[in-house]
């Protein structure tokens, strides 16, 4: 398998789509910090607060970048027919599948590293060291990001390896990416609702009265909350929201769920690819 990984890595480094994604992430990172400084000057943001969302901002859309890169990278093997060369010279299908997953994950990591390095440099240039020192729980955030990228790689590689049509695979992955964003937005916002809330009511005398700590009707509780929390742990896009949230309290639950999900997706993909008829 090492031969296939090496061959794929060289191809990835030469891939135009990969370099376009790197340039995009670099440009986006600089743009994000420039916008952040404009917000600071407008007074809508404090200089030493809230930079987590800027530093890890790519986690909110890296799935879109990967949903384009992975089917293009793997799809070339089908459109140019070169996957046949690998099978015909005696590489096992499991090796071919795993080598593609590993190299796509490496591409995701390189994209993450590129954004992070450019972010750090942009932060120092536009804001100063306080933009970096104000962020808490950096190891947790980076660790979770790596598992999120792994889960995306496993899911998108499965689709790209099982659908020989490159264009169709890109469309399916992009549609899935946007569907998940909508699903995640709903679940995340429901889970963020506080159990108790305050409200202002008008008394009989016409005065405005503040009622404190009353039950929030939008608060998700009981079995529904348990189910939501499990779904939340398995959805990488949802976990990306926690990575950028400076208030998040991290636990091992989500990384383990993402790891388990990735292992299941890779195993299922490899099994189905093993039985696939290739033309």
């Amino acid at each position: 398998m090492s031969k296939l990984i090496y061959a794929n890595l060289v191809r990835m480094i030469r891939s135009k789509v990969f370099w376009v994604s790197e340039i995009f992430l670099t440009g986006y990172s600089i743009f994000v910090y420039a916008m952040g400084m404009i917000n600071v000057r407008n007074g809508s943001m404090m200089i030493n607060h809230g930079w987590t969302v800027y530093f890890f901002n790519e986690m909110l859309f890296i799935h879109v970048v990967m949903a384009v890169f992975i089917p293009f990278f793997i799809g070339v093997e089908y459109s140019d027919g070169t996957i046949r060369n690998k099978i015909a010279v005696g590489h096992t299908r499991i090796d071919i599948y795993l080598a593609n997953v590993i190299v796509c994950y490496a591409a995701g990591l390189l994209q993450f590293i590129t954004y992070s390095v450019v972010s750090a440099l942009s932060a120092l240039f536009f804001v100063g060291p306080c933009a970096l020192t104000s962020m808490g729980q950096i190891p947790w955030r980076i660790g979770c990001s790596l598992f999120i990228i792994l889960a995306y790689t496993a899911a998108f590689s499965l689709i790209a390896m099982l659908d020989a049509n490159k264009a169709r695979a890109v469309v399916i992955e992009l549609v899935l990416a946007f569907v998940f964003v909508m699903l995640v937005t709903q679940i995340y916002s429901d889970l963020q609702e506080p159990e108790l809330t305050n409200r202002v009511v008008m008394s009989e005398t016409g005065e405005m009265v503040l009622e404190e700590n009353i039950p929030n009707s939008k608060y998700v509780s009981g079995t529904k909350r348990v189910v939501y929390e499990w779904i939340d742990a398995f959805l990488p896009e949802d976990q990306a929201m926690y990575v950028i949230d400076s208030e998040t309290v991290f636990s091992m639950k989500a990384p383990l769920c993402l790891l388990g999900e990735s292992v299941v997706l890779v195993a299922a993909g490899a099994y189905l690819f093993r039985r696939k008829d290739i033309k």
């Binding site: 191809r11 135009k16 070339v76 140019d80 027919g81 070169t82 996957i83 046949r84 060369n85 099978i87 015909a88 010279v89 005696g90 590489h91 096992t92 033309k279």
Partner: peptide
């Protein structure tokens, strides 16, 4: 059988080459 395929070369339908 996978090892014995290493003694074989093939072109199936169209040549399998990276076009770029």
């Amino acid at each position: 059988i996978t090892a014995s395929r290493r003694r074989m070369g093939a072109i199936v339908e169209s040549p399998s080459i990276y076009l770029d």
